[in-house]
Simulated assay, not measured.
Amino acid sequence: MEAYELWQKAVKAREFSYSPYSGFKVGAALLCKNGEVVQGCNVENSAYGPSNCAERTAFFAAVAKGQREFEAIAIAGGKEELVMCYPCGVCRQVMAEFCDPDNFHVICGMNKEKLEILTLRELLPKSFEMQD
C-alpha cells in the first residue's frame, strides 16, 4: 500500500475523533503485515488520564483482533486544518513493543505533497526494550 493511500485512511479515521476538550482531532491507520488496515482515533476524557491517542487506539484494536505484526502507521491530526502530527512518547513506546524499529514506518503529513516517512528507530532511537 502506498504511503499516501494509508495516510488518507488516517484522515478518514480522524472523522470519528472524540475530542470535545482540545478540539484536536487525530486519526491513525495501522497497516498489518497481512495487508489489513486497522483505524483508530483519539478519544478524550474530562479526567484527561483515561484519554487515548489515535495510534494506541489502532494498535490495541489490532491486537484485540489477533494481529501482532505491523508494517506502518499513518497519522493525520489538527484542529481545523491538518498539521504535521507526530506520535507522542507513549505511543512510540507501544510501537516499540510490537514493531521492528528499522523496518516499521511512521507516516505523518498535511497533504499529498507534505508527507514525511520515518522509521520507528528515527523517532525513538533508544527505546526501552526487554533484555535477554
Rank of each mutant, 00 (worst) to 15 (best):
L124E: 09
R121K: 15
C108L: 05
E69I: 03
L124Y: 09
R14C: 03
E15Y: 00
L115N: 05
Y48M: 14
E36V: 10
E80R: 14
S17P: 04
A72S: 13
P101M: 04
D132V: 11
G49V: 12
L123H: 09
E36W: 06
A62N: 11
V106H: 06
A62W: 10
E129V: 13
N52D: 09
W7K: 05
F128A: 12
A61E: 14
N45I: 05
A28Q: 12
R92C: 12
Q67I: 06
A29K: 04
E55N: 03
R92K: 15
E5I: 07
Q67P: 00
Y21K: 08
A61D: 11
Y48K: 14
N34F: 08
R56Q: 11
E122V: 02
K12C: 06
S19H: 04
F98T: 01
Q39C: 15
Y48S: 14
C32Q: 08
N42I: 08
G89P: 04
I73T: 01
P50V: 06
P101D: 10
P87Q: 01
C108D: 02
G89W: 10
D132M: 10
I75C: 02
A72M: 07
S46T: 07
N45R: 14
V94N: 02
Y4D: 05
P50D: 15
Y48T: 14
Q39L: 15
F59G: 05
L118E: 08
K112P: 02
E2V: 00
K126D: 15
S127Q: 13
E97T: 14
A62E: 09
T119Y: 06
P125M: 03
I117V: 15
C41V: 01
K79I: 05
E122A: 07
L118D: 06
Q131E: 10
S127D: 09
K126L: 13
K12L: 12
L124K: 07
A13C: 08
A72K: 03
N103T: 10
K126Q: 15
N111M: 06
A74D: 10
C53Y: 03
G40Y: 08
W7D: 12
F98S: 00
E71Q: 12
L31K: 04
Q39S: 14
M84R: 09
G35T: 02
Q67E: 15
A29H: 02
Q93I: 01
L118A: 11
D132S: 15
A47H: 11
Q67H: 15
I73P: 07
